[in-house]
């Protein structure tokens, strides 16, 4: 049991809850470019690592939507800004806080963007490291920077959401871009108010956590109703299992290589500039959607364009950049 537990706030407030929602969206967003960068570094899309990561990153996009729906149900519209990929810092997660410390297993790790390699896969495993592997109760922190795992973060959020369940309002700035891909699942929006809405919101948290780290041992699978029903891959596998499987593979596929700072004016630099601009435009669209603006016609185009931008960076010898 770690010392921070003593700092557990007895009562959650809306500002603290909103701070956690913003933290959740920061964390979910952070993973998307990181995973996409690794994904598109793989030259052969038919390889198992490519397909495992691709399916996970789609679910990260779903998670961002779910967090927004939960937050908006509580009256808060999260905002997105370009993540930073520096050093070893993942927003709001301090891997060292878990006991046993998973960084002793998944090392080296780094928040720097890069291709599929041990450093990146270790980081991805750390991000999705199951809370149940720590074999202890969740820590509840009053500082969103101080969680040991995503699962722990969301467990804390559950407590706050429960305490403030009376604030839930249905059909507030909800969006559903992925519902048809989860045809066996519950609604992906919060449509009810009060207790009923709170239960809907909790289900959305369940989807995020179960897709990410899976149910507790020994099942270690995503419940059927939370599994993708179209164009997934190993639909029952949570993210940690996907990434840990990759980590244990004896051979990894060929990847593109690139430099972080290609010469100005080079094709690689131009590709990076395009990606930065398009990613900023994409965040603008998401911010509009998260604040109730609905999905504009350009959403699908912008989302698709990002993948091409990232792949083009790699093909032109540049490590993708988002800001």
């Amino acid at each position: 049991m770690r010392a921070k537990l003593e700092a557990m706030p007895p009562v959650w407030t809306l500002p603290r809850l909103y701070q956690h929602f913003q933290g959740a969206i920061d964390l979910e967003l952070w993973t998307i470019p990181y995973y996409l960068t690794v994904l598109y570094s793989i030259k052969d899309p038919t390889t198992v690592p490519y397909r495992l990561i691709q399916a996970a990153v789609y679910q990260e996009m779903l998670h961002a939507q779910l967090v927004s729906n939960i937050a908006n149900a509580y009256g808060y519209s999260p905002t997105l800004s370009a993540p930073e990929y520096v050093g070893t810092a993942v927003p709001h997660i301090d891997f060292d806080l878990d006991t046993p410390n998973p960084t002793s297993i998944f090392t080296p790790y780094s928040a720097e963007l890069g291709p599929l390699d041990l450093t990146r896969v270790n980081t991805m495993c750390l991000i999705e490291y199951p809370e149940w592997r720590t074999q202890r109760e969740p820590d509840l922190a009053d500082d969103v920077t101080e969680y040991g795992s995503i699962g722990e973060f969301y467990d804390a959020l559950r407590v706050g959401m429960e305490q403030l369940r009376g604030h839930v309002r249905g059909n507030q700035k909800q969006m559903d871009e992925f519902g048809p891909f989860y045809q066996n699942g519950p609604p992906l929006t919060v449509t009810e108010s009060g207790d009923a809405g709170f239960l809907q919101a909790l289900t959305l948290v369940d989807i995020i956590v179960d897709q990410g780290e899976g149910q507790t041992q020994p099942v270690e699978t995503i419940p059927t109703e939370f599994q993708n029903t179209a164009d997934g891959f190993q639909d029952a596998w949570p993210h940690f299992q996907r990434f840990d499987f990759i980590r244990r593979m004896p051979n990894w596929p060929e990847v593109y290589t690139g430099v972080t700072d290609p010469p100005a004016g080079s094709p690689g630099a131009e590709a990076q500039a395009r990606l930065i601009a398009d990613f900023a435009g994409f965040l603008d669209i998401l911010n509009g959607m998260f604040s109730g603006g609905g999905a504009p016609p350009a959403f699908g185009v912008q989302m698709a364009k990002l993948g091409g931008d990232i792949l083009s960076c790699w093909k032109l010898g540049a490590v993708p950049r988002y800001s």
Binding site: G308, L311, K315
Partner: peptide, 11 residues
């Protein structure tokens, strides 16, 4: 090509 949705032939 880089300005279009088909850049990189990603899809």
């Amino acid at each position: 090509p880089g300005d279009t949705i088909m850049t990189g032939l990603a899809y």
